[in-house]
Amino acid sequence: MQARIVLYALPLAGFIALAVWLAMGLGMDPRNVPSALIDKPAPDFTLPGLDGAGEGFGTADLRAPANEDVVVVNVFASWCIPCRAEHPYLMRWAEDGVTIYGINYRDKPDDARNWLAQLGNPYKRIGVDANARVSIDWGVYGVPETFIVDRSGHIRFKQVGPITTPDLARAFREKIAAARQ
């Protein structure tokens, strides 16, 4: 008889487990896909510079000896509206001495130059990825995306979507600090 009672309570138990999962699901963002490149070396690439904004960059520029510090790689485009909201944070970090490289994604050079003239240039160097091929090597699937690369040239973190709130910015700075360890 005991076994029977347990048997009939099984659907309820199963549903309780399901409800817990569903509740956890509410807090998750199904659009946020984790990077496959975390803790892997940054891909091999070289990107040409944006005319009038200095030369481009490549894999070797990201790690020692070219850079003794952790670097941030930000994928942006002038047509990307969330990038505009993120831009002030990048400017502030650049002032704080964070090294930021920019990958200009599928953009028109004129638009990109106007953007930098209007909003300021937080980037140490900018690489132009007109056909998005290098961005695919980085596993980029939307703009903006922001990577943290450590001294050895390994990708440590990827932020998908814009950093637009103080909380997000603080969290990202903590990731930079962690990568410096």
Binding site: M1, R4, I5, Y8, A9, P11, L12, F15, I16, A19, L22, A23, L26
Partner: peptide
């Protein structure tokens, strides 16, 4: 909706656990 689910499904399955035997 999740709360509604828990009340409707959870409630009916609890009743089931008690009465179905």
């Amino acid at each position: 909706i999740l709360v509604l689910l828990i009340i409707a499904i959870g409630g009916s399955l609890a009743l089931y656990a008690v009465r179905a035997p």
